[in-house]
Amino acid sequence: MKLKALKAAFPYTIPIFAGFWFLALAYGIYMNVSGFSFWYPFLMSITIFGGSLEFVAVSMLLAPFAPLQTFIMALLVQARHLFYGISMLDKYKNMGWKKFYLIFAMCDESFSINYTAEIPEDVDRGWFYFWVSLLNQSYWVSGALIGGLTGSLLKFNTAGLDFVMTAMFVVIFMEQWMKQKKHHTGLIGIGCTALCLYFFGSTSFMVPAMILIIVILLAFRKPLEEGGLQ
């Protein structure tokens, strides 16, 4: 049962392997050249397991101690996970002991795969979710560790490889788009986020974007529900 779920889950995680290794290596190297031992990227990638915050945390560690600012900044960077939780309430129900790990390790990529993947009938859903989450985290942690150990010894001629993440979210967006009869919510997501990026700039657009998405989804609840959400 476990092995079968692993076989079903692995192919979904291949693009994540490419993207995570690239980004996590870069993160480990960044910590190394900033003067931190490999223990930092290693332990931080296990415990935080959220790429963008881990990068931000490097600059926090290089600045004077500011606990309140750190906490608020971290909440703002990670706020989008609230949306993932709300979307996964049903899927992660009755997962037993796995549920804790599934929520703990729910990064952008694991959420996206676990929400959209077409899991075959004869594969155990819990184990499928579990393997996707665990494989993704192991890619990230190993990349961060290797980057932290080797530092700038590694030479990059892989410019642009990080686009694998963008391409993956485009494909996942399309898959979800094709599954739904009406596509207004997708356009709301893109429109609100692009609008906020334009007005608030790339460092502080996410929270306003999330608020705007919620407000618009609630304001147009009736037509959207009648339009046929699954």
């Binding site: 949306f83 993932y84 979210f169 997501g189 986020t193 989804l217």
Partner: peptide, 9 residues
């Protein structure tokens, strides 16, 4: 309603 909006985001 959120997931498709979130993937767009």
């Amino acid at each position: 309603a959120l997931p498709l909006a979130v993937f767009g985001m």
